[in-house]
């Protein structure tokens, strides 16, 4: 009886069931708080035609950027992209589609998706290209557009520590989109730095309760820094 034990011992097991043309939500902001080993596993599997929902698309050779190398991504839904030459090239060639979404709207779309809310109204993007073709309504004298929630076949999430039940905590700003991503996957896979015994994490300090998590794997992280700035070298 596995009970609530969600720990898997291999990346193959962690990403089992991922198929071509699926949608994957990935946590992370830039290269901070990204599920490095799960992304590497998707590359290894060669799954293609993917729609990837993530704030950014990594850089050349790291993060989600490595999924561009074999053209595994069909469409990106992001707020800011183009930190990588390969991304730009595939976009200009028409090999890659991008749906630019305001950052707060993207976070809220994931949150709503995970919370069973199909759509919401926001002032963000009203009167701009983002609002074109979307339903708008006026509430108390202000105009809002309707934005639909996002869910995915898989959510890949990075946390600092988790127990076997999938209860987890994030570290510093590596939290970012991970808590919302965790709620919005049909299958949510959590890659963590450390798996601790059940009962070790203080219940009131848990960021994401295990109910949202289907699989947990312990990874090794490079944690590459995108822009190193120090108070001397700034």
């Amino acid at each position: 009886m596995a009970g609530f034990n969600k720990v898997v011992s291999s990346y193959e097991e962690a990403m089992a069931g991922l198929q071509n043309n699926m949608t994957v939500i990935a946590g992370g902001f830039g290269l901070c708080g990204i599920p490095e080993g799960l992304i590497a596993q998707i590359k290894k599997m060669g799954t293609n035609g993917l729609t990837v929902v993530s704030n950014n698309c990594g850089v050349d050779g790291f993060g989600l950027g490595i999924l561009l190398e074999d053209k595994q991504i069909k469409k990106m839904i992001s707020s800011y992209v183009g930190e990588n030459a390969l991304f730009e090239q595939q976009l200009l060639n028409g090999e890659l589609e991008v749906e630019l979404t305001p950052q707060g709207t993207l976070a809220e779309k994931m949150r709503a998706g995970g919370a069973g809310i199909p759509a919401f109204f926001t002032a963000t993007g009203y009167g701009t290209p983002v609002g074109e073709g979307k339903e708008s309504r006026n509430f108390n004298g202000r105009d809002y557009i309707m934005e639909e929630a996002i869910t995915a076949d898989f959510a890949i999430v990075k946390a600092w520590k988790a127990d076997k039940f999938g209860n987890c905590i994030y570290r510093h700003t590596a939290m970012n989109f991970n808590p919302m991503a965790a709620t919005a996957g049909k299958i949510t896979v959590l890659e963590v730095e450390e798996i601790v015994d059940v009962g070790e994490l203080e219940p009131s300090q848990i960021h994401t309760p295990g109910i949202y998590i289907d699989r947990v794997i312990q990874g090794n992280f490079e944690k590459r820094i995108e822009r190193l700035v120090t108070s001397k070298g700034a």
């Binding site: 902001f29 290269l31 901070c32 708080g33 510093h172 939290m175 820094i225 120090t230």
Partner: peptide, 30 residues
């Protein structure tokens, strides 16, 4: 951060390494 304080898990919206000031809080994108 000073060189010995650099932490890959502490960045700002420009993706630069930063520190948290006294009394700071950290939370999700939502």
């Amino acid at each position: 951060p000073h060189e010995d304080e650099v932490d890959a898990d502490m960045i700002n919206a420009g993706k630069e390494t930063v520190t948290a000031s006294k009394g700071a809080s950290i939370f999700s994108s939502a």
